[in-house]
Simulated assay, not measured.
Amino acid sequence: MSRNNKTNATRLLGVAIVTAALSAFAGVSQAQETKAAADAGQAPAKSWQTGLKRTDLVRRDLGIEGQEVIQVLVDFDPGVASPKHSHPGVEVAHVISGTFEYELEGQPNVTLKAGDSLYIPAGTAHVAKNVGTVKASELATYIVKKDTPLLKIEQ
C-alpha cells in the first residue's frame, strides 16, 4: 500500500470514528429527552427541523424603497416549537388552525387560536409553539428589508 493510500485510509477511519461518536451522542441525547417526556406523562417533542413545514406564498417589492412583503404558510406538528428567532422587519402572524403559544421577548406569553392574529415588532426575538394535539397552521406576513436574511436564530 502506498503512503498516500495509507494516509487516505487513516483519514477515512478518523472521519468514520468522529461520525459514529456524534451519532451515538445524538442518539443518547434524544433517548434522554424521550425518557424525560415519558416520565412527565408527555409525548416526546419533535424537532423543529422535521416538525415545521414552510410554504412560501408571496414575495413582492412593497413600493417603498428597500422594503418587501413576504407571506408564508407555516405548519407545525403537535408539540413543535420554532427556535428563538427574530426578523429584520415586522411580522403579523394569523392563526389558521390549531392553538399556538407565542413567547415574545419582554412581553408575557400569549395563546392564540384559529382566527386570532399577533403583531410582532421588528427585531423582537420570539418563539412560536403548537400547544395543541393536532397540526397547527399560521399565515405569517413580513414587511422587511429587501435582500436581508428573513430569519435570525437567537441564542
Rank of each mutant, 00 (worst) to 15 (best):
A38L: 09
R54N: 05
T19R: 04
G123Q: 10
K46G: 08
N5P: 04
Y119K: 10
T124Q: 10
L73H: 05
I120P: 03
S23R: 00
L22S: 15
T34M: 02
K46H: 07
E154R: 06
H126L: 01
E68Q: 09
E105N: 12
A16V: 07
D147S: 11
A26E: 14
S86M: 05
T50H: 00
N5E: 15
Q71H: 02
P149E: 11
R3V: 12
A24T: 05
K135N: 06
A93P: 10
V72A: 09
K146F: 04
Q71E: 13
Q30F: 03
A16R: 15
D39K: 11
A31L: 04
L13M: 14
T141N: 11
G106W: 03
L57E: 04
P108M: 10
A21F: 07
A140C: 11
S2I: 09
G98A: 03
S2V: 08
G14P: 06
A114T: 11
S86R: 09
G41N: 12
L104W: 02
N109K: 14
G115Y: 15
R54V: 01
N8Q: 15
L73F: 03
N109Q: 14
S29C: 04
Q42E: 15
G79T: 08
S117Q: 11
L52T: 06
P83W: 00
P44W: 01
D61H: 04
A38E: 14
V28W: 08
I120A: 02
E68G: 00
M1C: 10
K146L: 05
E105R: 06
Y119N: 06
Y102E: 14
E65H: 11
A122W: 11
K146W: 13
A9F: 06
I153T: 12
A128W: 00
A26Y: 09
Q30C: 08
K152W: 03
H126W: 00
T10V: 11
G89P: 06
V127N: 03
A45G: 12
A93S: 15
A31Y: 01
G41M: 12
R3L: 09
L139G: 15
S82T: 10
G79L: 01
A45L: 01
A81T: 14
E65S: 10
T55R: 06
E138A: 14
T99P: 06
D39Y: 01
Q42P: 07
T19I: 07
V80D: 01
D75P: 03
V131L: 07
Q155V: 04
A16H: 13
L57M: 08
K6E: 15
G79K: 04
N4Q: 15
L13H: 12
R59D: 13
E65W: 07
G79A: 06
L112D: 03
L139T: 15
V134C: 04
A114C: 08
S97Q: 09
L151P: 01
I143F: 04
A16S: 15
A36R: 07
